[in-house]
């Protein structure tokens, strides 16, 4: 369970997050949607502990993994060596690499990271997040630059992990993606969660309509 309570964050005089409250339970997939600059990535960076909140608390008894950007990799290293750095960092056996490589169909492990396309790098970043058995995975715009096959693989990987009790917080601009995956969607506008919609057994019905209504306000 992760509980975000009254989190606020400003960069100099620019208030990025107002007072954000939400929680995520085991096996739950929570999507965060909002326009550019609404504070989605800042919120994930706060949960990761890379930024410190101005006020509020984040209590978390999950073990965390994340793919919040295609950064954090060495351009001059091969994909395999980059992933090796992460298995070492996460204190896991390097056999984990073959599992995630297969999961995201990465058949270019011997290629230097700098030579990869944006989509290929994104798959490596996702593979890195799926190394190990973490109970909460944060994914920032996970479908960015991915082709349809890769999106389907990602969806499958998320659903498989959800069955094992892994929770996800993911941000996206693609409403249909959130509709397909999430149990709950939070609308983040101007640094505040202005609405939360849970999926019914039939799924979400009015995400786009809600988004448009909120963005007009």
């Amino acid at each position: 369970m992760i509980e975000v309570t009254s989190i606020s964050k400003s960069f100099k005089k620019n208030k990025v997050l107002g007072e954000v409250n939400f929680s995520v339970g085991p096996g739950e997939i929570v999507g965060i949607i909002g326009p550019n600059g609404s504070g989605k990535t800042t919120l994930l960076n706060l949960i990761m502990g890379l930024l410190k909140p101005d006020s509020g608390t984040i209590s978390c008894n999950h073990t965390l993994s994340a793919a919040v950007s295609r950064k954090g990799f060495f351009e001059g290293m091969t994909v395999e060596d980059n992933l090796k750095v992460y298995t070492e960092l996460k204190k896991l056996h390097s056999s984990e690499i073959s599992r995630v490589v297969e999961l995201f169909d990465i058949d270019y492990t011997n290629i230097t990271f700098s030579k990869l396309s944006a989509g290929m790098k994104q798959r490596v970043a996702l593979a890195q997040a799926f190394i190990g058995n973490y109970s909460l995975i944060l994914l920032d715009e996970p479908t960015n630059h991915l082709d349809i096959d890769s999106i389907l693989k990602l969806r499958k990987a998320i659903e498989a992990r959800k069955k094992n009790g892994t929770a996800f917080i993911l941000t996206s601009h693609i409403l249909t993606e959130l509709e397909k995956l999430c149990d709950r969607v939070l609308f983040l506008f101007h640094g505040n969660i202005v609405k939360s919609i849970s999926a019914t057994p039939a799924g979400f019905t009015n995400l786009e309509e809600e988004y448009l209504k909120l963005s007009v306000k």
Binding site: M48, G49, L50, L64, S65, A66, S69, K71, G72, F73, F74, E75, Y86, L89, K90
Partner: peptide
């Protein structure tokens, strides 16, 4: 410096 620039520091701080 490369590690500060490419975000590796952030990843190590987050993962460890």
């Amino acid at each position: 410096g490369i590690e500060f620039g490419n975000g590796h520091v952030n990843q190590v701080v987050f993962n460890a």
